[in-house]
Design a protein around this nucleic acid. Structure first.
Lengths: 333, 333
DNA sequence: CTGAAAGCGCTAACAA
DNA sequence: TTGTTAGCGCTTTCAG
């Protein structure tokens, strides 16, 4: 069994309190006894039981984060940023990976409840379900939390996002500016606020360039390279559009493959704008023109805000950070 | 403040023990009181304090996992598999992301110590440092652990790996069989056991095909797409080899870009075999010929073994699982 | 500078 | 079926 401060105390012939003081670098202790105690602790291979101290201290130095899928570079990069930052602050990460994108509310609520039961000091979340059941749970959430990527309407809370409307707007504008008259946009049917915002951005671009309403065709597509590939392939079988835009770079990669398989050239025959600028986007062949989101930085920023909320409970101000977007022009347009 | 079972007990006019029984679905309780208690718990928005029960039960239903980099799809996929499996078993994941590949021993030891202090029930590790200091720590590790991807020599423990020697062997053999006489192999200088094993596999292939010792040229390269790109670029400036092989697919992507930038064709001018078969390998352009490792499955298997060790403490047998590899021939050879 | 006592929230063992 | 007691390992008063 793991030794406890009690064991050390017995060994050192002092009280557990003295041991606690030595272990925690408190001032009020004789340097000699402190040294002796630390030596004993080392010899016994003592490992402090954080559970016990957390219970007592009512804080765990732990952050909970929920993501839907770590195989998607989008979330993997966010998690990377969050973990690094957490470590800098001396916090541990408890990770909850959902079964899939847009999973059912029950699963998401369960993940939230478990994290709260673990008494994490703060939460990093992106609501998969923006319906009231989950949002209500958030309203009653007893610990600080920061939302990343999306901000559901009607929930006053801290969040760090990119402007999805603007992102889709600059993507479409870029295509329209280079003379394209139509865009096929691979995206899931509007459910989340972020998807709706993107669609709105498209509409604004249409308006700005004075094009007909149906210049952008939505193709309902899952967030996966496979589905993007299949959907594009089917489309190309009977029609070759001037340009594609996709929800993310992963889907863009599927689109590229379908285009190339068809023997078409990019961007000569078809143009394409992706989204996110994931790490491989610039190394892809052809290098992807895409809208850059600051993914790792989003994770870092979310943790910054969260730690601030945790350490300064008095500050009730709500933090909204909107990170900047930019179009990165490469070889697919 | 969060309500406790004491609060519920007061409200329900019973003892905390009865509350505990109701909350934990114990048999010995009157259905009526149980129902009443659960209603009160719900009304008070009660959330059980897992810290307290963990302290008492001496188990946390928590697994610690250490990875060097979540932006690398290799680790991201392993983590995905591990998280999913952990959730199936009802375990939470505490994640520790190191500052970088092959980080210093102190940092790695610190991550280990913290996880042990958190009293995780088990650990999933891949030793970055295979030197004695860290290995010694593992020897004295008071909780079950499973190593993934690498198995340091001289440490008797559970692990799940692929056969690196065989992997490099089949990659090189494939290239030699298709008539290549030389391979430029981008890989870090031999440090870890896995790197050494790969090199050995190369040598065996050389032997098998009766080629000169220097048929494989090692190019010292970091595990990054950037460095692979730079190193290949420099090489191509004065020499175009017949074939490349890389430590992983990420590096292969860098190599492809350098080759294409140079105006060379794959595989007509240069062949290439990657390693891992990460998700985008098949969608890359050209689709990568690569050695498939079962990454997600490796994470899942590691958790399977770990849970088994945790639940059946009597079983002292050491588990070694070696997952199967296969060459996936696509368009770069 | 050091020690004794109380208690964080929970569950197991025993008693009623 | 329910309640009482003890204790998991630690830190925070409060005394000495």
């Amino acid at each position: 069994m793991n030794p406890t401060i009690k064991d050390i105390a017995r060994e050192a012939g002092c009280s557990i309190q003295t041991v606690s003081r030595a272990l925690n670098n408190k001032e009020e202790i004789d340097p000699g006894t402190k040294k002796r105690i630390l030596e004993i602790a080392k010899r016994l291979n003592y490992s402090p039981n954080i559970l016990a101290s957390s219970l007592r201290l009512k804080k765990t130095k732990t952050l909970g984060i929920v993501i839907p899928d770590n195989r998607d570079p989008f979330y993997a990069e966010i998690l990377q940023g969050a973990s690094k930052k957490a470590r800098e602050y001396g916090y541990q990460i408890i990770l909850s990976v959902l079964s899939h994108r847009g999973c059912n509310v029950e699963e998401e609520l369960a993940a939230l409840r478990t994290l709260i039961s673990q008494r994490v000091d703060g939460l990093l979340l992106q609501p998969e379900q923006e319906e009231s059941l989950y949002i209500d749970a958030l309203r009653g959430c007893p610990i600080p939390y920061v939302l990343y990527n999306r901000a559901p309407k009607g929930l006053v809370c801290n969040y760090v996002t990119h402007n999805h409307e603007q992102g889709a707007f600059i993507a479409c504008s870029h295509l329209f500016e280079s003379g394209k008259k139509e865009i096929y946009y691979l995206i899931r049917k509007p459910q989340t606020s972020s998807i709706k915002a993107r669609i709105k951005g498209c509409e604004k671009a249409i308006e700005k360039y004075g094009l007909p309403k149906n210049s952008i065709h939505i193709i309902d597509c899952e967030d996966s390279v496979d589905d993007a590939y299949q959907k594009t392939k089917s489309l190309l079988d009977h029609y070759v559009p001037q340009a594609f835009h996709t929800w993310d770079d992963i889907m863009a990669i599927g689109v590229v493959k379908a285009i190339i398989d068809k023997g078409l050239r990019i961007p000569e025959d078809v143009s394409l704008v992706g989204y996110n600028d994931i790490l491989i986007a610039r190394y892809f062949n052809p290098p992807l023109t895409t809208v850059r989101q600051q993914l790792t930085f989003m994770g870092e920023t979310a943790v910054d805000i969260l730690i601030q909320k945790i350490t300064d409970k008095t500050n009730k101000r709500v933090e909204h950070v909107e990170l900047t977007l930019e179009l990165v022009k490469r070889a697919t347009t």
